[in-house]
Simulated assay, not measured.
Amino acid sequence: MQLKSKLINLVAGLGLAALTTLAAAQSAKPNVVILATGGTIAGAGASALNSATYAAAKVPVDKLLAGLPELANVANVKGEQVSQIASESFTNDNLMKLGKRVSALVKQADVDGIVVTHGTDTLEETAYFLNLVIRTSKPIVVVGSMRPGTALSADGALNLYDAVSVAASKDAAGKGVLVTMNDEIQSGRDVTKKTNIKTEAFKSQWGPLGMVVEGNNYWFRAPVKRHTLQSEFNIDEFEALAPVEIVYGYGNVSRTALDAVGKSGIKALIHGGTGNGSVADRIVPALQDVRAKGIQVIRSSRVPDGFVLRNAEQPDDKYDWVVAHDLNPQKARILAAVALTKPMDSKELQRIFWQY
């Protein structure tokens, strides 16, 4: 009887020691929260051969995490479903809801990093938005996939694993909002979707910040534009984005769209021009009319790479217009929508486009 009691005590002691060791191991790991919004990474096709034909935003975050148990080796991971939509349907309200949740989480001492799963169509816009308005040095990583998880050679699982490994790493702190896809670590400011059918869809003309290989980060450059903790914008200080629209330039363009959006109550209009933000001669008066209504006019370019030079194609000083620098039209819209939550003139807005 005495021997049996000793054995019970020994087993209980070993169990307690094992639990203590497990608890210590868990507490040593970073804590990462995954905020899911839908998209292809949560999509499902009818068969394994459906890599481009599928329904987005079908798989909830708990099932995404259950299908990737390797994440437990990297961090203590929790998931939240913020929304469940295809990203082409993302609205300003969706951005604000997501941004407010990210801002609240990064203030918690028990959160070391954030991952946002997102559809690829507007992923770059959301990443840039968070880069502008979240005041933190903690890693924030936005991630998506080009193929649903049901497809052959699906890319979502590895992309998500890489995103968590980056969000969990101390060396990712202070580098702004990041995008991890196709083994690359990209700046959320610079990266854009450049092809719609390949897994290597996201590129920056300035190159990636680094690579992720087998869960390890290798860094080669850092962003120099203002972001996150150095930003003058704070999502906790406003409740809605300013209304901003985009109108594209093209051969035989008319002023019909410009006249329509100029009457819609917007605060800024992005002109996605040809070449160096060029504006057709018959469109110049239309943009002048828009500016005369107090609407900011911002010249961007539909050309994927390069940047718009001030007073080059158009006399921006004379017309009181702003240039978008290297931001494409969709990212220029995000910056203008954030900046114009505060009152400012065109000179102040131009400073912001140079700095961010």
Rank of each mutant, 00 (worst) to 15 (best):
Q2E: 01
L10F: 14
A12T: 05
T21M: 14
A42N: 00
A44H: 04
A46P: 03
N50Y: 04
S51Q: 11
Y54S: 12
K58S: 08
L65Q: 07
G67P: 12
G79K: 03
E80L: 15
L95V: 02
L98Y: 03
L98T: 08
V102G: 05
S103L: 05
V106W: 02
D110G: 08
I114A: 05
V115H: 06
E124F: 07
E124R: 00
E125D: 10
F129E: 01
L132I: 08
I134K: 00
P139N: 07
I140C: 04
V142F: 05
Y161H: 11
D162N: 15
A167S: 04
K170L: 06
V191R: 00
K194G: 11
K203G: 00
S204D: 10
L209I: 06
V212H: 01
H227S: 11
Q230L: 05
S231C: 11
E239Y: 05
V244Q: 03
T256D: 14
S264E: 11
A268N: 03
I270F: 08
I270A: 06
N276D: 15
A280V: 05
P285A: 11
V290Q: 01
Q296E: 11
I298D: 10
S300C: 10
R310Q: 06
R310G: 04
A312S: 14
L335A: 06
T341M: 07
S346K: 11
Q350S: 12
R351T: 12
R351C: 01
